[in-house]
Design a protein around this nucleic acid. Structure first.
Lengths: 254, 254
DNA sequence: ATGCGGAAGATCCTATAGGATAGTGTCGCG
DNA sequence: CGCGACACTATCCTATAGGATCTTCCGCAT
């Protein structure tokens, strides 16, 4: 995130529409199943249909939207229990690996002798800077429990993305980011009590990375995901009845 | 591939442009770095610009194209040595797992008692049919060595995608497909002699899956990827000098 | 010869209009 | 009272035109 800031890039209206819509989906302002009207969005954002179409095409390619060719776009539906388990299976495969690699590549607080670095010349294409661990520790901290729940979900995603970025593998990072984007809705279901738990687990992962203990980092991430999975499952089954039945119709964007 | 044919869907011009361009990229008719002109493609395909823009946006989201906001689209450049290694690292993580799961879920040729199936109810969301293994064995066979090299690359990609589909995890399948799409160019560099090797390794994987030996399938896939990696690396370094220097400019689409 | 500045051309980006299709409501019939 | 056909509306899909930006080429000064 903060690492890959490559400067002030040129932005088109399609880019603005893309980030705006993605942000709305992440914030659950647009509920799963909600219909996205093309010219509705155009009038709402005050630009024409063409940039909107481009943004929607990108979001659909990422799996955040579903498209029916002559009918329109809708926000991707909530994950079923099986799909959720499937997604977590892959997270359990990727994220501990990312944590391990991040620990291997980390420049501890006592940086200096980084001359003969590049321990694994074949792997690793990322361009993480020297102060990377500061960002990581900052991202591990969750906002105070009385804050908006949205802040917590955002912090949670940022931490996982930060670890992914520090892995040094752009492919692994991309894969993790893609999966994380699909968890937006489920994160909102988490119970307030478990926020502190999450923060403790995040810090455990972050510290293991900072002190360069790959095995410990990998294991800490694995345990975090396992606990996170049970937390989500509990919250998920609680509202399962509602999601199974069709909620009449999710409100569309006019 | 053949498993997930859900019927004759409605197709728009944007869909046609998307598949056409993707096919051209896979066939290396569009070389890396080649510029894709919007209205150039529009005139060539006899559509207007709007569907073209939509198709390009999707391809860019998949990483097959690169976009510079007010400058245009270009075909994604050839992978560097480090990027190639990075991509293979992730393949080595995902594909053996997919092979193992495919073997676990496989309905051997002696199918019948599939009543109490669903051994792992939590995982697995794919909807693979009963005759899946036939497709797999068919996909493992490579075309005769005197055939066009394009047929081989296509068969190679089909086999790996087939195994991914049989894994029963749509997330794993998507991840593998995405990675495979980036290997199109490198596959073209393979030496003709190694085609038979590849076929033998594919068959070893396929057979292990069909006879439901998960460990063997996983290991066979791992060994196949390792050998494939060295084959690609050899062919890659052979042409490395050319790719390092800028080839003047790849021809654009007028 | 090399580097810099400016103008012409090409291309992208955006906006708007018209044809085509899916969804919805109503009317009539069984 | 229920069901099917029809017409209407809303929306998507496509096409075309104009303004803004980048790229390129040429000339000139150093």
């Amino acid at each position: 995130m903060s690492v890959t800031s490559t400067g002030p890039e040129k932005r088109t209206l399609a880019d603005d529409a893309y980030t705006d819509l993605k942000s709305r989906i992440m914030r659950s302002e647009l509920a799963p199943g909600a219909k996205l009207s093309i010219d509705g969005l155009a009038k709402q954002l005050a630009f024409s249909q063409t940039p909107i179409r481009e943004a929607l095409a990108r979001l659909e390619s990422e799996g955040l939207l579903a498209r029916r060719p002559l009918s329109g776009y809708t926000v991707a539906p909530l994950l079923s229990t099986a799909e959720f388990a499937d997604l977590f299976d892959l997270r359990m495969m990727l994220e501990p690996l990312a944590a391990r690699r991040a620990a291997e590549r980390a420049t501890g607080g006592d940086v200096r002798g980084r001359a003969g670095a590049r321990s694994t010349p074949a792997s690793g294409t990322g361009a993480a800077g020297p102060l990377e661990t500061d960002d990581l520790l900052a991202a591990a901290l969750t906002p105070p429990p009385d804050a908006d729940k949205l802040l917590f979900t955002e912090a949670d995603r940022r931490f996982h993305n930060e670890v992914a970025a520090l892995s040094g593998s752009v492919q692994i990072e991309k894969a993790i980011r893609r999966l994380d984007a699909h968890l937006h809705l489920h994160r909102a279901y988490i119970k307030p009590e478990s926020i502190e738990e999450t923060e403790a687990e995040h810090l455990a992962v972050a510290e293991a990375i900072v002190v360069r203990q790959p095995r410990a980092a990998e294991e800490a991430m694995r345990r975090h995901l396992e606990r996170s999975r049970t937390r989500h499952a509990a919250a998920f089954s609680a509202v399962n009845g509602e999601t199974a039945a069709k909620p009449k119709r999710a409100k569309a964007v006019r």
